[in-house]
Simulated assay, not measured.
Amino acid sequence: MVVGQKIEKQFGDLKVLKGIDISIDRGEIVTILGASGAGKTTLLQILGSLDKPSSGEVIINGTYINRLTGNQLAKFRNQHIGFVFQFHQLLPEFTALENCMLPGLIAGKSAKQARQQALKLLSYLGLNDRLEHKPAQLSGGEKQRVAVARALVNDPMVVFADEPSGNLDSKNQEELMDLFVDLRKQFNQTFVIVTHDQYLAQKADRTVHIVDGVIVD
């Protein structure tokens, strides 16, 4: 469902990715592990359409995303891809509910539709009593759950997560990965997760190891 073919990425004379081939199935939870500088975040950003490879192709559900133009790519990303980041990236002036609604509104849903979907997800994630709280009023674990709900609000084909547990304590780290597993069971959701967290890696269906820009067994 997500396929990377011969992906290379170079910054000046520095080659970060050196011909990556990767395939991820629908409903699979895959973690990407590697030392700092190995290229794992660069790979995630390329697979998630946030960056372009120097060469190679990324295909998501049959769409060659490298070949999309700016507006086409933005629309595809909004409708089919979700993102969860280490530091949440919630807008501080908006409530949890409003933050979760935003991708739906950008996708052209009515306020009623976006609100209904956001309420459904936030309720599922146990945040019914935090809907009107702004990020500064939420704990780290609560902010991350809002970020997960926001990533899912448009029912994406795949969610890319970059060190999603890196800013959480050990209890919330475990709860977050258990949440990903539950969401896969409930919605057949696909997750691609860059992490240093061995608990996340152990719970995943498969772990991809990157060393010096190449995948190793």
Results as ranks from 00 to 15, higher is better:
89 Q>D: 09
25 D>S: 14
138 L>E: 03
142 E>F: 09
37 G>T: 07
34 G>P: 04
127 L>I: 01
24 I>Y: 05
120 K>V: 00
119 L>C: 02
79 Q>N: 15
31 T>Y: 01
48 G>K: 09
87 F>G: 07
22 I>R: 06
122 L>N: 06
64 Y>Q: 14
122 L>E: 06
56 G>H: 13
125 L>Q: 05
138 L>M: 13
7 I>M: 08
12 G>K: 03
127 L>R: 06
84 V>W: 09
50 L>E: 05
28 E>Q: 14
91 L>G: 00
50 L>Q: 11
60 I>G: 11
54 S>T: 15
112 K>T: 13
43 L>Y: 09
56 G>K: 11
37 G>L: 08
78 N>S: 00
10 Q>W: 04
119 L>I: 08
129 D>N: 14
12 G>L: 03
85 F>C: 03
126 G>D: 04
38 A>M: 02
70 G>D: 15
131 L>G: 08
5 Q>H: 13
46 I>Y: 03
38 A>F: 01
62 G>S: 08
115 R>M: 05
58 V>D: 10
20 I>M: 01
80 H>N: 15
77 R>D: 02
37 G>I: 08
9 K>A: 07
121 L>A: 04
49 S>I: 12
100 C>Q: 01
8 E>P: 00
139 S>K: 07
6 K>G: 13
79 Q>E: 15
135 P>T: 06
34 G>D: 03
9 K>D: 04
133 H>G: 02
106 I>W: 02
52 K>I: 09
8 E>W: 12
122 L>K: 07
67 R>A: 15
125 L>F: 07
29 I>N: 01
50 L>I: 07
23 S>H: 11
86 Q>L: 12
42 T>E: 04
78 N>R: 11
49 S>G: 07
140 G>P: 09
10 Q>S: 13
63 T>Y: 10
68 L>F: 06
100 C>I: 02
61 N>C: 10
87 F>T: 14
38 A>R: 01
112 K>H: 06
108 G>R: 09
133 H>K: 14
105 L>I: 13
95 T>P: 12
46 I>P: 06
97 L>Y: 01
76 F>S: 11
89 Q>I: 03
97 L>E: 07
18 K>S: 08
64 Y>P: 11
76 F>L: 12
71 N>L: 12
80 H>W: 11
107 A>G: 04
22 I>P: 02
137 Q>Y: 10
107 A>S: 13
28 E>N: 06
119 L>M: 07
80 H>L: 06
